[in-house]
């Protein structure tokens, strides 16, 4: 990598120098991107982040917002750390590399003790958010959030919760809920599942209360599950208009699982601006809105304020994960 990095650094340094010297700095941006963009997904194909990355690439190309090919590739491993390391290492200063991430840029360094985080990347934009749903199977005696509260107040460990891995959004929502009732969140009976494994466990009654993404709605509509609450701050529309939020029911639990685009460290300010403009344009297009609708995503575009909200989230997550005994 040595030679090529030196070469690349020299080239970008030359480009920067040229941009600084030239009277019209905008001209440097005018011919950006000069070659194909490589968009890294730090997770395996088939997951939520993969779908996000590929959809963004598709819409940007189809709507002709970006005139270069966007090549998506996967670099999975260690909760996104291997991908972050590639961005912070070999791809440093590379203006033609992007990466798609979710909460992991905050959680992975905290729960695994790995060196890279959003602080070693260039945050470009938060694009959309997903929320969590609390469900029970139809046969369950639990009818509402009040029933869950009653059971937990009697014995904090009496209900079996099932959802994605520990420290994940599902677990965070359950923990926040337990804390709100004055219980110790580490005493909650929480069974961690990976991928969609928790769905059969919920349907089969092997857990009492299930947590999951909004795609559980298909099972709710089919009459197999009952939705108790959604972790959004406001009530959602469409299919979800009949499902109350935690807040509406008097429990201050809000959690969003966002997806965002990051550049490697050292990405030039002009290029960051280019992409922020591109994403601002993209979320207004019809085809992007159709994707949101189809995938049950909620628009939550943030560009200039992204870094500040990441900092806030980092601090609050650190506190909560500490209480859960998950900090490394």
């Amino acid at each position: 990598m040595g030679m090529s990095r030196i070469l690349r650094n020299a080239l970008s340094a030359a480009a920067m120098a040229a941009a600084l010297m030239s009277p019209v700095a905008a001209s440097a941006q005018a011919n950006y991107p000069a070659k194909a963009i490589e968009l890294m997904v730090a997770f395996a194909p088939g997951g939520g982040v993969d779908l996000f990355g590929r959809t963004v690439a598709k819409v940007l190309t189809e709507e002709k917002i970006v005139n270069q090919r966007i090549q998506v590739f996967n670099k999975p491993g260690a909760g996104g750390e291997l991908g972050m390391a590639e961005m912070a290492g070999p791809r440093k200063n590379d203006n033609h590399s992007l990466s798609a991430f979710a909460l992991h840029v905050i959680y992975t360094p905290l729960t695994l003790g790995t060196p890279n985080s959003y602080k070693t990347l260039t945050p470009i934009a938060k694009i959309f958010s997903e929320y969590q749903m609390m469900v029970v199977r139809t046969e369950s005696p639990i009818k509402s959030l009040k029933d869950v509260e009653a059971a937990l107040r009697k014995d904090i460990g009496s209900l079996r919760f099932g959802g994605a891995s520990l420290g994940n959004s599902d677990h965070i929502v359950v923990s926040k809920f337990a804390q709100l009732l004055g219980g110790d969140p580490t005493k909650v009976t929480y069974i961690a599942y990976s991928g969609g494994e928790s769905n059969p466990a919920i349907l089969g009654g092997h857990v009492d209360v299930g947590m999951g993404g909004l795609d559980l709605m298909d099972l709710v509509k089919a009459g197999k599950m009952r939705a108790l609450a959604i972790s959004s701050d406001k009530r959602l529309g469409g299919d979800f208009k009949d499902i109350p939020t935690f807040v509406e029911q008097g429990y201050d639990v809000v959690n969003q699982n966002w997806r965002g685009i990051f550049g490697p460290p050292g990405m030039s300010a002009e290029v960051v601006k280019y992409w922020r403009d591109a994403f601002t344009k993209m979320v207004e297009t019809k085809s992007w809105k159709a994707e949101l609708e189809k995938n049950q995503w909620s628009n939550s575009l943030e560009t200039d304020t992204f870094v500040a909200s990441l900092d806030r989230e980092y601090d609050s997550s650190k506190k909560l994960l500490g209480q859960l005994g998950l900090l490394k």
């Binding site: 395996a44 194909p45 088939g46 779908l51 991928g195 969609g196 769905n199 059969p200 349907l203 795609d215 298909d218 099972l219 509509k221 089919a222 009459g223 197999k224 189809k294 995938n295």
Partner: peptide, 27 residues
């Protein structure tokens, strides 16, 4: 029958169906 993927490939197929706007699941 349930929209539950039994393997990684089935999970991608599921995502693909949702991409077409088809609600998977028991219905």
């Amino acid at each position: 029958t349930l929209g539950i993927p039994g393997s990684a490939t089935a999970a991608v197929m599921l995502a693909a169906l949702q991409g077409y706007g088809i609600n998977t699941g028991p219905l």
